[in-house]
Amino acid sequence: MSAPLFDAESLRMGPPPDPARPEAGTGTGSTGGSPVDPLDPTVRPRREIPEPTPLSSHGPATVLAMCNQKGGVGKTTSTINLGAALAEYGRRVLLVDFDPQGALSVGLGVQPHELDITIYNLIMERRVTIDDVIRPTGVEGLDLLPSNIDLSAAEVQLVTEVGREQTLGRTIAPALDRYDYVLVDCQPSLGLLTVNALACADGVLIPLECEFFSLRGVALLMDTIEKVQDRLNPELAITGILATMYDPRTLHTREVMARVVEAFGELVFDTVINRTVRFPETTVAGEPITRWATRSQGAQAYRALAREVIAR
């Protein structure tokens, strides 16, 4: 088995840093020459991210699993808005709702309980093709594989199947040549559905709420990723860690962010998603924030994240 991806001890919460300590130091922040606040790790030198170049053709797709076994960390919100931002840059994107709760579908204006055919039918019924299930969204270049509560039965039914961990990969394979990115919104657990997503993914994007309990769960997720790398998908890599629900006004949030940066270094995206009332509004509206509040701070943040994802 490969070496651990990080030292779990580095994620332990220590005493808050003392801003009066001279060894905290200063440096060049993302604002271009301003001192770095040792209590605000988001103020750090920004990496040069080139503007995405236009594409003359599409595919094959890079598959990214949006994964964190803790719920409420902004996973679905990030899937929707990153997908929409990638589409703005001319990328063709398929969003896969792989959570029986169907939150991704709801966030794009689809009512899961009204669907006659979903990804559940696609993975469990041979007569159903991927074109039967893919739905366009209100964003050009952004398509959806919807889900509903039926998918919860798949986890039980797949247990006896041969090659059960590869089911999702076989399912989406016929569509990969049409898209540049496939974003899989995983359920908040480390069960068979999540393992399926990791087994077919090129990378894992980890939304991480800047809160202590979310930080503790990262060790379990990393252990699962290492097992999948070792046994199912040696090409799987961590694309990046996205800090979400960041509130610079609280010391706890900044301290958690500091531990994440200390443990994962360059894997942590420069982009940080701040708390804002705009995100709940977009869920009600059934639209990405890039369309609902196109000039908002949240929309700009996800566009910056899209540039980082393309660059990686």
Score class of each variant (00 low, 15 high):
38 P>A: 05
285 A>W: 13
103 A>D: 15
53 T>M: 14
272 V>S: 08
193 L>C: 07
185 D>F: 00
293 A>C: 11
298 G>E: 10
140 E>W: 04
81 N>A: 00
5 L>R: 11
19 P>R: 11
199 A>R: 09
139 V>E: 13
235 E>L: 11
51 E>A: 09
171 T>R: 11
152 S>V: 12
183 L>A: 01
63 V>I: 14
96 V>N: 07
210 C>S: 15
308 E>I: 00
185 D>P: 04
243 A>M: 15
177 D>M: 06
196 N>E: 05
219 A>W: 01
53 T>V: 14
198 L>Q: 09
275 R>H: 07
4 P>G: 07
52 P>F: 06
181 Y>G: 09
252 H>T: 13
268 V>S: 06
146 P>S: 06
160 T>R: 13
232 L>F: 06
247 D>I: 08
86 L>V: 08
263 A>P: 00
157 Q>L: 11
65 A>D: 03
303 R>V: 04
148 N>A: 03
226 E>C: 10
109 G>L: 01
5 L>K: 07
90 G>H: 05
207 P>M: 05
21 R>Q: 12
47 R>F: 09
312 R>V: 00
40 D>I: 02
126 R>S: 13
106 V>C: 14
77 T>K: 12
232 L>V: 00
28 T>K: 05
248 P>M: 08
279 F>W: 07
125 E>M: 08
114 E>C: 03
109 G>M: 03
71 G>N: 02
33 G>V: 01
217 G>F: 09
160 T>D: 15
94 L>N: 06
54 P>G: 02
2 S>P: 15
161 E>L: 14
83 G>Y: 12
286 G>Q: 01
169 G>W: 05
70 K>W: 08
156 V>T: 14
117 I>E: 15
214 S>D: 06
125 E>D: 14
48 E>D: 14
149 I>D: 13
233 N>Y: 02
83 G>T: 09
42 T>I: 02
180 D>F: 10
255 E>M: 14
70 K>V: 00
127 R>C: 06
78 S>T: 09
35 P>K: 00
135 R>H: 08
302 Y>K: 10
123 I>K: 06
2 S>L: 15
106 V>F: 15
101 Q>K: 03
312 R>Y: 03
137 T>W: 00
4 P>E: 11
194 T>Y: 03
209 E>G: 14
167 T>P: 01
42 T>S: 06
102 G>C: 01
39 L>W: 00
187 Q>Y: 11
224 T>L: 11
278 R>N: 13
49 I>Q: 02
21 R>I: 13
215 L>S: 04
37 D>S: 01
239 T>F: 05
276 T>Q: 08
2 S>C: 13
